[in-house]
Computed example of a mutant assay.
Amino acid sequence: MNRIEHRACFGGWQDVYRHESEALGCAMDLAVYLPPQAERERLPVLYWLSGLTCTEQNFIAKAGAQRYAAEHGVIVVVPDTSPRGEGVADDPAYDLGQGAGFYVNATRAPWAAHYRMYDYVAEELPALVEANFPATAARAISGHSMGGHGALVVALRNPGRYRSVSAFAPIVAPSRVPWGEKAFAAYLGEDRAAWEAYDATALVASARERLPLLVEQGESDEFLATQLRPELLREACARAGHPLELRLRPGYDHSYYFVASFIGEHVAWHARALRA
């Protein structure tokens, strides 16, 4: 791993590393915030997955999470949202290709050669972090929009691996909204049965662990009715008896102003679960 950024932040260090990913077959940038407690002890880790068009930079520059991570003694790890680089398939649209990996393992050409973001987040990333940083195996996961979808899916598909999961404005039912339908058809093909492995509303029905879901949603989000549809997750959880706390916030939109407003509450919530 090659450190390419190193900045003092709230008594700790906001770093960015570049490494060669086996899962993705390309170089990836990875942001790691080490709070001051990391100098003397191993700490639990909160993984953050970002949304469409984002890199690791959006969250570390805009969310203000480092202050709360330092307060609670939590490492924060933020990967990029897709494979990138020469030879990695792309599309001119913002919602497909580089910057729009959707946290799936693609099975269709040309995407299958590199787009294995599910394996990267669920398998390669924790192994990498726990081998190279003062991290324990206590993990939490969260994300925003496309990343909120990824956080819910990764946690639901891996019982016992995460102590907690939360999401900001997640795409809860990608199989039933335009963003997800477009990406899943491209990455996974037209068989909608295959899409259910990456759809939180389908996964809660068969979840082997009743890990509580915390979802934060702005009521003035411009994508609320067309792309996010949190009511579908609420209905799915009610049918399955899966614990869900859905917080609807009047006046808030889809931006990082929304994320920054409530990230402190989420970091504290994860910290309690990580140290339980």
Rank of each mutant, 00 (worst) to 15 (best):
P44G: 08
L52M: 13
H19D: 02
R116F: 01
Y68R: 01
E39A: 15
Y103H: 10
V129P: 03
T53I: 11
A106S: 04
V129Y: 07
L34N: 00
V77E: 06
A65C: 14
G101L: 05
F59H: 07
Y33I: 09
R84W: 14
G99I: 04
T55D: 13
A31C: 14
R40D: 09
P126F: 07
V74M: 11
P35I: 10
T81V: 15
P44R: 08
Y33H: 11
A127E: 15
G64P: 07
P126D: 08
P126L: 11
G101D: 03
S21A: 11
A93T: 15
T55Y: 07
L46A: 13
E56F: 13
V32P: 00
E22Y: 02
A69N: 06
A112I: 08
A27P: 03
Y47S: 02
A122Y: 03
N105C: 11
R67W: 13
A69C: 15
Y120C: 04
L52A: 05
V104M: 02
R108P: 01
P44M: 07
V88M: 10
C26E: 06
P126Y: 07
R42C: 13
V77I: 12
D119I: 08
N105H: 08
V104E: 02
G101R: 00
F59I: 06
E41D: 09
Q37R: 11
C26F: 09
F59T: 03
H19A: 09
H114V: 01
C26V: 07
V129W: 05
V76R: 05
D91L: 00
Y118N: 00
S82V: 07
Y94F: 14
T81L: 03
L24S: 04
D80H: 08
E124S: 07
A23N: 00
G85M: 07
A106C: 08
V76Q: 03
Y103I: 09
A61S: 15
R84I: 08
D119T: 12
V121C: 04
P44A: 09
Y120H: 13
Y47L: 10
Y118H: 11
Y94M: 12
D90Y: 08
P92N: 11
Y115N: 00
D80K: 03
A69D: 05
C26N: 09
Y103W: 15
A122E: 04
L96H: 09
V32G: 01
A89L: 05
P36K: 11
E56D: 13
S82F: 05
A106G: 06
R84V: 12
S21K: 03
A93C: 14
T53Y: 05
L24R: 02
V121G: 00
A23E: 06
R40C: 10
Y115V: 01
H19F: 14
V121D: 01
A70D: 01
R108G: 04
C26A: 10
L24Q: 11
V32C: 05
L49C: 11
A89Y: 06
R18L: 06
G101Q: 04
G87V: 12
E56N: 15
V78L: 12
D29A: 13
Y120E: 03
R42H: 13
Y115K: 03
P79M: 11
Y33G: 06
Q66Y: 04
R116A: 12
A127Q: 15
L46I: 13
D91Y: 08
P35V: 09
D90H: 11
A61T: 14
V77Q: 01
L46P: 00
R67Y: 13
L128V: 15
T55V: 13
A113H: 04
L125I: 12
